[in-house]
Amino acid sequence: MPDPTPSASSARPEAIRISDLHKSFGSLEVLKGVSLTARQGDVVAIIGGSGSGKSTMLRCINFLETPKSGEIVIGGETVEMRADGSPANRKQIERIRTRLAMVFQQFNLWTHRTLLENVIEVPVHVLKMPRDQAVARAHELLARVGLGDKADAFPAFLSGGQQQRAAIARALAVDPSVMLFDEPTSALDPELVGEVLTVIRDLAAEGRTMLLVTHEMKFAREVADHVVYLFEGRIEEQGPPAEVFGNPKSERLKQFLRSVA
C-alpha cells in the first residue's frame, strides 16, 4: 500500500495506521475499506458530507465501535482483533485507549465533577498517577486553555466553548500520542468557535498528532498537513490541503467544496 502521507514526513515514526477498515450497522455498510496513516506530528483533517462515515471511522480507532474487519496499528502496536472484528484483548484495548484522547462534539464532561476533577480523573484512576502530581498538571493545563480560574467550577455552569476547552485539557492530561477530535466546534454558538479553534491551532503548532473531523474548511486548510475526503464510506480523495482544497480532482469533492463554501 503506498504511503498516503507526504514523503517529507516519512522519516517520522508512524503514530497510527488503519488498513482496509470495514464497518457495518446491520445491513448498512458505513465504512467500505478505509486506509489511512498518520505519522507523529501529523494533523490529518477528515472532511465529508453528513453520514459519510467520519465519526464512525474515528470511533472504530478506539473501538467505541467494533469494526467488521481491517487492521489498526497504534504506535507500532497492532490491535488484536477476532475474526469478527471485535477486540480480542480487553486489557490491550484499555491500554491503547489511554494513549488516544478523544474530544467529542458534545464535550461529554462528567457533570458531577468540577473541571479539575474532570482533568485528573483519568490520570489518577486509570493511569495511577500520584494525585498531587496530577492536580499540579491539571492546573497547568486548565491555565493553558484559558480556564485557570475555573478549576472548581462544574461544567454545567460554563459556556459551550469553555466546556470544550476543558474537554481538551482532559484530553491533554493523559499525554496522548494521538488526539481524536470529532467535530469539536459543531455544537458551539458561532461566537464561541474561535476560542476552541485557537486552542487546537496551538496544539497543532506544537506538533501534536491529531485526527480532526471538521466542517470548518478554512480551519482544516490552515492547520492540516493532510486532508482526507470521505464519501459514502470510502476515501474519495486525499492529499495536502493546498491540493485538496485548491485543486480538487474528483467531481464529488468539487461539488462538496462548493456546497460548504
Binding site: N62, Q106, H125
Partner: peptide
C-alpha cells in the same frame, strides 16, 4: 447521558471503574 459513559470508555476505564 450516554456520552459521559462513552467518555469513560474512550479514556480506557474498565467497566467496573
Amino acid at each position: 447521558p450516554p456520552g459521559q459513559i462513552e467518555a469513560a470508555r474512550a479514556y480506557g476505564m474498565p467497566a467496573f471503574m
